[in-house]
Design a protein around this nucleic acid. Structure first.
Length: 930
RNA sequence: GGGCGGAUAGCUCAGUUGGGAGAGCGCUGCCCUUACAAGGCAGAGGUCACAGGUUCGAUCCCUGUUCCGCCUACCA
């Protein structure tokens, strides 16, 4: 066939787009239920539908695509199922910002029109990330693209909610939850990020009611919450205070007195004064203590985390204090309270204090514990089987270091708050009969707005509806028409939506058609592997395992591979505000998609974050170019007859490269099975650059360039065969360049995508060739070193001698005369040392191998002498070390015999080397003297 | 506070049953040798964080210390 002309450098952009469209058009990525292979399925961790591809996605998706393409080539029935999630809070925030920029708001728009607006936003930006994924070469079955809010998945959400509710595993109740006063919604425990910050510890004095001259001092980091204190706790065994239990203190700034109680859980006698104020409505520990002692809960903050005048009055706060702080946010109220306490002489001291402050993971606003009715999943019954699944290995977590992390969290898991006070998401399928619940449904004027603003609102938005804890919902798959209790038909639907993770927790089966019993579920569930980052192990992975076991009766996936976080070159977390983000799209434009993918794979070592620097990507861009040029070389020489000989009858370079290829196939496959993408990638890189290009292509040039060479036809065959095999081995990592080159080589089939993955061929394994090569490599290296020592130009034709002090090895060398001549650029004599000239010769020795190079003209021999002197010293040092060990009786008596024998052999070898080096040095000095 | 991981060449990292320290990038020198200067060849560079212990022998196993990350937690 004619050799196609390949350009001198590889241009990824044109190639990538062309092939991706072709792959899609021909449907190579489509899964088929009829496929005879064993199923292999990955569901993609759904990215935010309105987001765009960042480098973390690029890593996550590249690794999945490597696994998928590899398994596809292995003949498995592959499904990679793509999709996106609706990212409730994040997406709602984005659209709200747009509205504010337009001078509108979601309240002005109303719920229905707001949701329409979000769908519009999804329609305009929803394809962005999908197109970027395609640019990355992802071989997903795009026909099966799913979205957490689409009809099928919403049906699954409804079904799960109703069933869990029926079983009593979902309940509604008033609890203290994490509340974001900016997003105005509840958050689950893990949506709160903790950050160390500097704060203050305020010591406040509470006078005893029966003895006001005596004061009980309590410490707090949040003095403004003291207005809502309902008790002070001391340790029951603390002799300083326990006689006060049952007495009362006067709460400063209020008209109230509160009891002193004994509590050994809340109180740490060592900390502070040993007395603790209790604010059950604004602190999780205090809430628990309040439960234990039946204390009232007095909230003092509203949902914007401002001091609420109505609540303050209800809490008996003095009117002057209310006037001073009402409607102030916490940060502004705190100094006012501090000043008021100081005025009253109630503030004992203020110390600096380090504390961890909780922030909203979406908007970084300080989260407040907030008392409100919410929906929860009772999690213990779901967690128990999910713990067992990992303990027994039904789900494998890789690297397994994360197993304890998972188990620890699961064993201490808290009920999951699933309701969110936002509009974008799956609205909770609970309806309240307005007649039966007349007393528990409160409609108040919207407190978040000044009255003038509130007047502008449509009536439906003007109210804030609060459905109190006692309300009785009807939970159903569709809206009820009649109240089962009173028969009336007017209902209010619960306005809350579900946590986004509630729907993504169903992802491995909802995307396959559940709750319908589809053939897809039957074929692909449990899925094979989940590839994800550590950051969503709890958010997502744990919940998928719990819900998968609950509703499918089986784990959602067999393996969970947890990969690293991508950081910048300095190890900093990438963030837009720091301006250190590496944009994968820009990288792909600049260096090519294959280079980016290969970089990420090669750096994916387990248990270590990836510090990504552009130079690395550039390095692998160069690798792609190297492959490209090797292919150009092949094309220049593939014309002519080709002959397929049995491997054992091929020439030495052919046998050697096939043996190396055999080994590389073995390593790449084995490491992929162990999810060691880094080792697989490095094996590919090392093989191709440093064995295939550096040595093999050089070794076969004589056979290729001489038209009448007897090994020509076989060499051409092996060249083509080895290159084609390597491209298949490489394809999962570098899909584009491998396809582009593969297409130009002789091949069967229409695409590399569906070719079989190479398997190790035992007939290619050749220890003899490998051993011979090791000698050749070292010998050639030594002649090149000698050339540099003598300042010979690289092209200079030299006269050389090579031998080895072991006779059999010397025989092996003798068979390599032509290879030495070619790579060493000169005339090589492979005879015993006795027949070498004894002057005008620079000799180098290592491990019994000696190379001599003829010294011509007036060259400076000093560099060579220095080199020999240095090497002799090193040899001497190593000799001392080994001899020392062998002289040690304990070593000789206790070390294993093979280690002793090895030491002795090495010592002998060193001794011979040393003799040879010393004689070389004498010879050189003689020449210098002459 | 608890848990986990890391500390190996200038940088980023391998090193899997303890026995002669490796790679990539970078650096230095020489080369535009017809596949490739996005390249070739040669080379410099490391008491494997520190201190003990186990062992004939420790980068590797054990203990402690220091430093850096991450996760987690209610010390008011």
């Amino acid at each position: 066939m004619p050799s196609p002309q390949l350009d001198k450098t590889y241009e990824p952009r044109t190639v990538e787009d062309r092939w991706y469209r072709e792959w899609i058009a021909r449907g190579y990525f489509r899964a088929s239920l009829d496929h005879p292979g064993k199923p292999y399925c990955i569901v993609i961790p759904p990215p935010n539908v309105t987001g765009s591809l960042h480098v973390g996605h690029a890593l996550n998706h590249s690794l999945q695509d490597i696994l998928i393409r590899w398994r596809r080539m292995q003949g498995r029935n592959v499904l990679w199922l793509p999709g996106t999630d609706h990212a409730g809070i994040a997406t709602q925030n984005v659209v709200e910002k747009q509205l504010i920029a337009e001078g509108s708001s979601r309240e002005l728009l109303g719920r229905e029109r707001f949701i329409e607006r979000v769908w519009q936003w999804k329609a305009t930006s929803g394809n962005t990330i999908v197109n970027q994924q395609k640019q990355l070469g992802e071989s997903c079955d795009w026909d099966r693209l799913r979205f957490t809010m689409d009809e099928g998945l919403s049906k699954a959400v409804l079904e799960v909610f109703v069933r869990l509710h029926e079983e009593g595993l979902i309940y509604r109740g008033e609890r203290l939850i994490n509340w974001c006063p900016r997003c105005l919604t509840a958050l689950s425990d893990i949506e709160v990020e903790h950050e160390d910050s500097k704060g203050k510890l305020y010591s406040i004095e509470y006078p005893l009611e029966h003895d006001p001259a005596t004061r009980l001092t309590v410490a707090t980091t949040r003095p403004e919450t003291m207005l809502g204190d309902t008790a002070v706790a001391v340790h029951p065994d603390d002799p300083r205070y326990n006689h006060l239990i049952g007495r009362r203190v006067r709460l400063p700034l209020t008209t109230r007195t509160i009891p002193i109680i004994g509590d050994n859980i809340l109180v740490d006698r060592e900390f502070g004064t040993g007395a603790v104020k209790i604010t059950p409505a604004h602190d999780f520990n205090d809430y628990e203590a309040g439960e234990r002692h039946q204390l009232p809960r007095l909230p003092v903050l509203d949902h914007h985390a401002r001091l609420d005048p109505v609540s303050l009055r209800a809490a008996g706060v003095e009117q002057a204090v209310v006037d001073a702080v009402e409607l102030l946010p916490v940060a502004k109220a705190r100094p006012k309270i501090e000043a008021l306490l100081r005025e009253r002489g109630a503030l004992a001291k203020v110390n600096d204090h380090k504390l961890a402050i909780g922030k909203c993971y979406r908007c970084k606003t300080v989260v407040e514990p907030y008392l409100s009715p919410q929906w929860f999943v009772k999690i213990q019954p779901l967690a128990a089987p999910a713990i067992k699944a990992v303990e027994t290995g039904h789900v494998r977590i890789i690297p397994e270091g994360w197993v304890n992390n998972y188990l620890g969290w699961m064993r201490d898991i808290k009920d999951w708050c699933i309701s969110r006070q936002i509009w974008w998401g799956h609205q909770i399928p609970a309806w309240y009969c307005t007649a039966c619940n007349a007393d528990t449904i409160l409609k108040t004027v919207h407190e978040g707005m000044a009255t003038s603003e509130a007047r502008e609102l449509p009536p439906a938005s003007r109210k804030r509806i609060t459905i109190l804890q006692g309300a009785v919902p009807v939970v159903a798959r569709s809206a009820p028409t009649q109240c089962p209790r009173c028969g009336k038909s007017e209902f209010l639907r619960d306005p809350d939506v579900l946590d986004t993770w509630f729907s993504s927790g169903l992802w491995p089966f909802s995307t396959l058609g559940w709750p319908d019993r589809t053939p897809e579920l039957k074929t692909y569930y449990p899925t094979s592997t989940l590839v994800t980052g550590l950051d969503i192990l709890f958010f997502w992975v744990a919940r998928m395992i719990m819900l998968g076991l609950k509703f499918m009766g089986d784990v959602p996936f067999r393996d969970v591979y947890i990969h690293a976080l991508v950081r910048d070159a300095e190890g900093q977390k990438m963030s837009k505000s720091k301006g250190n983000v590496i944009d994968p799209l820009h990288v792909m434009d600049q260096f090519g998609t294959d280079a980016l993918r290969f970089t990420l794979a090669s750096m994916a070592s387990p248990g270590r974050d990836i510090k990504l620097a552009e130079e690395r990507i550039e390095g692998y861009r160069n690798f792609a170019n190297k492959i490209w040029n090797a292919a150009r070389f092949a094309h220049m020489h593939l014309d002519g007859t080709r002959e397929s000989r049995p491997p054992a009858q091929r020439s030495f370079p052919e046998r050697w490269i096939l043996s190396r290829l055999h080994d590389t196939i073995r390593i790449v496959t084995q490491e992929l099975e162990a999810y060691r993408f880094d080792r697989s990638a490095n094996a590919l890189y090392h093989f191709f650059w440093h064995e295939y290009c550096d040595w093999y292509l050089e070794l076969i040039k004589p056979a290729l360039q001489d038209a009448s060479h007897p090994d020509g036809p076989s060499t051409r065959h092996t060249l083509q065969e080895s290159l084609e095999t390597f491209l298949r081995l490489l394809h999962p990592f570098m899909p584009f360049i491998s396809e582009e080159i593969w297409q130009t080589l002789p091949h069967a089939g229409e695409t590399i995508v569906t070719q079989s993955y190479p398997t190790a061929n035992a007939a290619w394994h050749s220890p003899d060739a490998e051993q011979a090569f090791a000698l050749l490599e070292r010998g050639v290296g030594m002649t090149r070193t000698a050339r540099v020592l003598l300042n010979y130009p690289p092209g200079k034709h030299v006269t050389c001698f090579v031998t080895h002090d072991d006779a059999a090895t010397a025989q092996t060398l003798a068979a390599l005369r032509q290879e030495f001549a070619h790579l060493g650029r000169g005339q090589f004599t492979l005879q015993p040392l006795a027949q070498w000239p004894d002057s005008k010769l620079l000799r180098l020795t290592l491990d019994g191998l000696t190379v001599g190079i003829h010294v011509e003209g007036d060259v400076d021999l000093n560099k060579a002498v220095d080199r020999l002197t240095k090497q002799i010293a090193e040899t001497e040092k190593e000799t001392q070390r080994l001899a020392g060990k062998l002289k040690n009786d304990e070593f000789v008596s206790k070390a294993p015999p093979e280690v002793i024998a090895d030491h002795q052999n090495r010592l002998q070898g060193l001794s011979r080397d040393r003799e040879m080096l010393a004689s070389s040095e004498r010879q050189l000095r003689a020449m210098l003297g002459a």
